[in-house]
Amino acid sequence: MTKQEKVTFVIEKLEELYPTVPVPLDHYNPYTLLIAVLLSAQCTDVRVNQVTPHLWQLADNPFDMAKQDVDDIKAIIRPCGLSPQKSKAISVLSKMLIENHAGEVPKSFEELEKLPGVGHKTASVVMSQAFGVPAFPVDTHIHRLMYRWNLTNGKNVMQTEKDAKRLFPKSLWNKLHLQIIFFGREYCPARGHSVERCPICSKIGRKSLSQ
């Protein structure tokens, strides 16, 4: 297959397998999505979804969160890991949203990435899933699969994002990145992956993983 044929096949197969895809992190507005994505760093979505209902009981908006003691936030989010850093980031970014954005989550990459604990990937998730702005957040699943399918050189996540945006139509980015995540979890894991049973690798081949 040529690279373009691979891209077309991937798009069609993912659409066949996942015609609708929910956002894996439970949330109900841009602020709760922002906090959930922040908590997901080095933590599973399942664990985050177990923790956030308790956090929302404490505070589910920046005005209430800014009033909370950092130690109280930390106690709730401890199961997510990195709780000292994450609790401080949640507290400070909530205050920054109030001071700089009238309590609203900003709708730009530049402003989002000024917030503590918010990197490019987190900003991309918020922009795409909260505001519908085309973005292609690259997590470990996407980075692994793009390399495995020989659609990127695997150098780093920035290169993978650049290649994904170059190869896939912009109109598909917001849905496609979720489809790849679900596919990676179900069919194309890092360990114990069977090429023969993988609906995509069995058809287009796979590049051996060094990681």
Rank of each mutant, 00 (worst) to 15 (best):
I90N: 03
Q85T: 15
R206H: 15
I200A: 07
V126F: 11
D71G: 09
R148W: 00
V157H: 10
V126Q: 00
E186V: 02
G192H: 05
L39G: 03
T52W: 09
P30C: 04
K165V: 02
Y147T: 13
T20A: 11
D64F: 15
H141C: 08
L82A: 12
V157T: 15
I181W: 03
E111T: 04
A41L: 07
P84I: 06
V46M: 14
V7M: 03
A130L: 14
G154S: 12
N174Q: 13
P53A: 14
N100M: 12
N150V: 10
L145K: 07
L145H: 03
W173C: 06
M96R: 06
I142K: 00
S40P: 02
T52P: 02
L38Q: 13
P137V: 14
A75F: 09
T140P: 08
L33A: 06
D45S: 09
V46G: 05
Q129E: 12
S40G: 09
V195Q: 14
V70C: 14
W173A: 11
L172A: 13
P169E: 11
T152G: 05
L97I: 01
K121I: 05
L151G: 00
N156I: 12
L145Y: 03
E161Y: 00
G205Y: 08
M158P: 00
K207T: 10
G205I: 01
T44G: 08
P134S: 02
Q42C: 12
D71E: 15
T44A: 05
Y187T: 01
P134Q: 08
K107T: 13
K67F: 05
A102F: 08
N174V: 13
L34R: 11
V37C: 12
Q50C: 03
K162V: 00
R191W: 13
F63G: 10
P79N: 07
T44W: 09
P30F: 01
C43T: 06
I11P: 04
L167K: 03
S40K: 05
W149Q: 00
A66M: 05
R47C: 03
D26H: 13
E15F: 07
P30I: 03
R78K: 15
K121T: 05
E111H: 08
K170V: 15
E104C: 12
S171G: 07
Q57D: 12
D163M: 08
S210Q: 15
L17W: 07
V48K: 03
P24K: 06
F136G: 00
T160M: 04
R166G: 00
E110V: 13
V23T: 14
S108W: 06
K67E: 11
N100Y: 13
Y147C: 02
L17P: 10
A75Y: 09
L145M: 09
G192W: 04
Q211P: 05
A36Q: 11
K114W: 06
A59S: 09
N61Y: 07
L55C: 00
F168T: 07
L25E: 13
E196S: 15
Y18L: 08
F182I: 01
K155G: 01
S94F: 00
T32E: 10
Y187L: 09
I11Y: 09
M127D: 08
H193V: 08
